[in-house]
C-alpha cells in the first residue's frame, strides 16, 4: 500500500430531494492507492450514498471528488474504465445463466473472445462456480449469487473496486472465499472501497476504516490503531457502538 491518494474527497455533501438533513455532511478524506478502505456505519449513516457518488451514480450537492486525479463530474466516462462496482443488490439477470451474465457484463466492458472466456473461466474456478456456470442465476443460492455479482464487477480488472456490503446474507464459506480473494486482489494493486455492517470482518480486512454516522465521519484510521488509541474498547464493534449509540436506526 502506498500513501498516495487515488481518491480525493473534499467537503462532500449530499442532500436528497425534500430532505432537511444531509445524507452526507461535509466529508473530506483521501483513499490511498492499493488500500482496502472500509466505510462503516449503521443503517442510513450515508455509506451507500458516499459510494454511489464515488462511482458517479449521482452528483453530490456540494464538494469535489477526484479519482486518479480526475474530477468525477468532468471525467465520468474515463473513470468508468478504471472502476468496478459490486452493488448491494444482486445486480444480475436472473433468467440468464451465470456464464451468460458474465459474458454480457464482460462485453459491456469491451472484453471479448478468448481473453474474456479465459478470464471468466479463471474466476468461476476461483469462486467454485464452474459446475453451475450454465445454470440460471434464479436457481443459485444466496452465496452463489453474491459470488457471481462480485465476478461481474471484476472482469475488466478495475484499478479501483467498490463493494457495497458484498457479504451480506451469505454463509461463512462464501464469505471466507470472498474475503480471501479481496486480500489477493489488493496484492495485485487494486484499491478496494468497501462498506459493511460486520465490524469483525472490517477489522480483519481493511487497512483503514471510516466510521460514519448521520452523514459525518466520526472516526477514521487503521482499525487496530483506533482500538489501541481507545483502550476502553475491547474491539472495533464496542467502539462503534459507543460512537454511534445503541439506539435502533431506520
Amino acid at each position: 500500500m502506498t500513501e498516495e491518494s487515488i481518491i480525493g474527497i473534499r467537503d462532500l455533501t449530499k442532500y436528497y430531494k425534500g430532505a432537511d438533513e444531509p445524507a452526507i455532511d461535509h466529508i473530506s478524506l483521501g483513499i490511498f492507492k492499493d488500500e482496502i478502505f472500509g466505510f462503516l456505519g449503521p443503517n442510513g449513516a450515508g455509506k451507500t450514498t458516499t459510494i454511489s457518488i464515488l462511482c458517479g451514480l449521482f452528483p453530490p450537492t456540494k464538494g469535489k471528488v477526484t479519482i486518479d486525479g480526475l474530477d468525477i463530474r468532468l471525467n465520468h466516462e474515463k473513470i468508468k474504465h478504471i472502476i468496478g462496482i459490486v452493488p448491494q443488490e444482486v445486480a444480475l439477470y436472473h433468467t440468464l445463466t451465470g456464464l451468460e451474465n458474465l459474458q454480457f457484463f464482460g462485453n459491456m466492458y469491451g472484453l471479448k473472445g478468448k481473453a474474456l472466456k479465459e478470464r471468466i473461466g479463471e474466476y468461476l474456478v476461483r469462486f467454485g462456480l464452474e459446475k453451475f456456470a450454465r445454470k440460471q442465476v434464479s436457481t443459485y443460492s444466496g452465496g452463489m449469487k453474491r459470488r457471481v455479482n462480485l465476478i461481474a464487477g471484476l472482469l475488466h480488472k478495475p484499478r479501483i473496486l467498490f463493494l457495497d456490503e458484498p457479504t451480506v446474507g451469505i454463509d461463512v464459506q462464501s464469505r471466507n472465499v470472498i474475503l480471501e480473494f479481496l486480500h489477493e486482489l489488493q496484492e495485485t494493486g487494486t484499491t478496494i472501497i468497501y462498506t459493511s455492517h460486520y465490524m469483525e470482518e472490517a477489522e480483519k480486512l481493511c487497512n483503514r476504516v471510516a466510521i460514519i454516522d448521520q452523514g459525518k465521519i466520526i472516526a477514521i484510521g487503521n482499525p487496530k490503531e483506533l482500538v489501541a488509541l481507545n483502550p476502553e474498547f475491547k474491539n472495533l464493534e464496542t467502539m462503534f457502538l459507543h460512537l454511534t449509540g445503541k439506539g435502533l436506526r431506520d
Binding site: K80, I85, A91, Y93, H94, M108
Partner: peptide, 16 residues
C-alpha cells in the same frame, strides 16, 4: 425489472 434488479445501476458504471 432491469432497474429493480439493480442491473441498470451496474450498467451506469460501465462505459456503455
Amino acid at each position: 425489472k432491469e432497474r429493480e434488479e439493480g442491473s441498470l445501476i451496474r450498467l451506469m458504471t460501465i462505459p456503455v
